[in-house]
Simulated scan of single mutants.
Amino acid sequence: MTAPESSISDIWRPHVTVACVVADRDRFLMVEEEVNGCVAYNQPAGHLDDKETLQQAAVRETREETGWAVELTHLIGVHQWRSKEHGDVIVRFSFAAKPLSHDPQQPLDVGIRKALWLTRREIADLGERLRSPMVLMSIDDWLAGQRLPLSIVSSLMPGSVS
């Protein structure tokens, strides 16, 4: 007896997300957002959209959530975590970026209350209000000097620029 074929919709898939650790001296760019009626704090972060590279998604999410244009400098790491919010697995690509310019007139994504700059201590003091443990993990990785070249992340998608 042969096993029934599984359909594409039966295949388990994690959420693929990106985040940017944007540092300015001892402060990091963060967002204050409303998630399920509660205030949470995160780096500029979000889901990878169809037909975009991980790098494009990281730059886009940062602009949409903060009004900041950034230039990616490194890949910090790839983190995996099961969300308490929805129970699904998140695979997060964390990038380091430098701030280039800010557009204070840019409307922020729905749910984003404001962008703010906080020190590592202020971020750690947020405790359970952090959106996930990956927030502090990626900052600590960056502070420890973990920086991989952007060339380690490539895309073979037509029309993409890695």
Rank of each mutant, 00 (worst) to 15 (best):
I8H: 14
S9G: 03
D10G: 15
I11G: 02
I11M: 05
I11T: 05
W12V: 13
R13N: 14
R13E: 09
P14V: 01
H15R: 15
V16Y: 08
T17I: 06
T17Y: 01
A19G: 03
C20I: 08
C20P: 05
C20K: 00
V21T: 06
V22T: 12
A23C: 08
A23N: 08
R25I: 15
D26H: 03
R27A: 06
L29N: 05
M30H: 05
V31L: 02
E32N: 12
E32G: 01
E33P: 13
E33H: 10
E33K: 07
V35I: 14
V39T: 10
A40R: 01
N42K: 11
N42Q: 13
N42H: 15
P44V: 04
A45F: 02
A45I: 00
G46V: 13
H47P: 09
L48G: 04
L48A: 11
D49L: 10
D49F: 15
D50C: 05
E52L: 04
L54P: 01
A57V: 09
A57K: 03
V59S: 00
R60A: 04
E61P: 01
E61K: 12
T62S: 06
R63K: 14
E64T: 05
E65A: 03
E65L: 06
T66N: 07
G67H: 04
G67R: 01
G67S: 04
V70P: 00
V70T: 07
V70M: 07
L72Y: 04
L75I: 08
L75N: 03
G77F: 03
G77Q: 07
G77M: 08
H79T: 10
Q80A: 13
W81I: 07
R82M: 15
S83R: 12
S83C: 08
S83D: 12
K84H: 14
H86C: 15
G87A: 10
G87T: 13
G87H: 06
D88E: 11
I90F: 11
I90N: 06
V91W: 01
V91M: 07
R92W: 04
F93E: 00
A96F: 09
K98S: 04
P99C: 13
L100Q: 10
L100E: 12
S101R: 15
H102E: 11
H102M: 00
H102D: 02
P104Q: 08
Q105E: 05
Q106E: 12
Q106K: 10
P107L: 01
L108Q: 12
L108N: 03
D109W: 13
I112G: 10
R113P: 04
R113D: 14
K114W: 02
K114F: 05
A115T: 12
L116T: 09
L116S: 06
W117I: 04
R120C: 02
E122K: 08
E122L: 05
D125V: 14
D125M: 06
L126A: 07
L126F: 12
G127V: 11
E128I: 06
L130Y: 00
L130I: 09
R131T: 11
S132W: 01
S132R: 03
P133N: 11
P133I: 11
M134E: 11
M134F: 11
V135T: 09
V135D: 00
V135A: 03
I139M: 02
I139L: 07
D140C: 00
D140K: 05
D141N: 08
D141F: 13
D141H: 13
W142F: 12
W142P: 00
A144K: 10
G145Y: 02
R147C: 02
P149R: 12
